[in-house]
């Protein structure tokens, strides 16, 4: 079977129909990652009792687990307990056909929280100690110092890295095909099930991811410029 670019086009259309799933997965997990990861980083920075110690142990462990295992482990961790329930209520079919996007979101968000907390921790460490001291010397509390001075500066350090994290999440989200979520990769592959044009389908999917990541990269440049304006 020779390469046929027509099938790239066919798969591309199929992939784009599932674009919203990839966008949803990567954007929601980035946002949730920031919401969960930033407090984690703050706990570690300020040595909040118990939380800091727990994070010190857990984050290096969680950082060492590949994303595909997050997806698989959460898939079973969430579905297994439901099995017994399904059996007693005769939900077997419902469960089989359930939209697994929530499992994908949970896995990607957990992964993203770990990554983003590391990004925010290094960003917080980049703000010189003198900035805290200046805040305290004019009578700001620690909370006020964080809100008014420290976090704005830390965010400026974090923006380029966060954008890289986001690009990683866009590409990483493709891994959810292992639990049969129809995202860009899943959509492209589905179109190839009929024609057996897998090479063309993969190339179509690659094109979509490349454009998404290039767009995120452009966005990063614009954000960086805005933060570097001072």
């Amino acid at each position: 079977m020779t390469f046929d670019s027509v099938y790239v086009w066919v798969s591309l259309k199929a992939a784009l129909r599932c674009l919203h799933v990839t966008l949803l997965l990567s954007i929601v997990s980035l946002v949730l990652g920031m919401v969960l990861g930033t407090p984690l980083a703050l706990c570690r920075k300020f040595r909040v009792r118990f939380a800091a110690q727990a994070a010190d142990v857990l984050i290096p462990v969680l950082k060492g687990i590949p994303l595909v295992l997050y997806v698989l482990i959460l898939n079973f961790a969430i579905l297994k307990p439901l099995d017994a329930l399904a059996e007693s209520c005769a939900w077997a079919d419902k469960l089989r056909l359930m939209d697994k996007i929530y499992i994908g979101l949970a896995a990607l968000s957990a992964y993203s929280a770990v990554i983003v907390s590391e990004t925010m921790r290094s960003a917080l460490n980049s703000v010189p100690e003198g900035q805290y001291e200046a805040c305290f010397s004019v009578g700001l509390t620690r909370g006020q110092a964080l809100r008014r001075v420290i976090m704005p500066q830390a965010l400026a350090f974090a923006v380029p890295v966060l954008c890289n994290n986001f690009i990683g999440l866009i590409k990483g989200s493709s891994i959810v095909y292992v639990i049969e979520i129809l995202d860009v990769l899943g959509g492209a592959m589905a179109s190839a099930q009929v024609s057996y044009r897998f090479l063309e389908a993969y190339i179509a999917a690659a094109l979509v991811y490349w454009v998404l990541c290039a767009g995120a990269g452009r966005g990063s440049k614009i954000l960086e410029k805005r933060f570097a304006g001072r």
């Binding site: 010189p128 003198g130 900035q131 001291e133 200046a134 805040c135 010397s137 008014r148 001075v149 704005p152 500066q153 400026a156 001072r230």
Partner: peptide, 9 residues
Amino acid sequence: FQNYNLFSN
């Protein structure tokens, strides 16, 4: 302060 420590943002 010796190093001024103005809020850089």
